[in-house]
């Protein structure tokens, strides 16, 4: 029950209470985004971002570039081309 699932932020529902509409596996649901660290940016910047959703709360913003970098690193380690799929 500790697992988070990736979800995409579709729109902000309530700025004040920090709720957003998110989509995961084709299903849309309301989620709380108020625990995310926005580092001074507006909550609207979350639209289009991938987050990790856990029991209805977005707990981390998934860094797409880091994910790609990790895969590239693994590929360099094992000698496979990261883009061969």
């Amino acid at each position: 029950m500790c697992l988070g699932i990736p979800a995409k932020v579709i729109s902000i529902l309530d700025k004040e209470n920090g709720t957003a509409l998110v989509e995961t596996g084709g299903v849309r649901r309301e989620a709380c985004v108020s625990l995310l660290s926005l580092q001074g940016k507006s909550i609207n910047n979350l639209i289009g971002e991938w987050v990790l959703l856990h029991v209805g709360f977005a707990m981390a913003i998934i860094d797409q570039q880091e994910a790609l970098d990790t895969l590239a690193l693994i590929a360099s380690l094992d000698g496979i081309d990261a883009n061969n799929d």
Binding site: G4, S34, L35, L36, S37, L52, M59, A60, I62, D63, Q64, Q65, E66, A67, D69, T70
Partner: peptide, 13 residues
Amino acid sequence: YSHVVSATGNQPA
């Protein structure tokens, strides 16, 4: 797991 986990974690949480 650096695309999700940071050095200091989720501060607001």
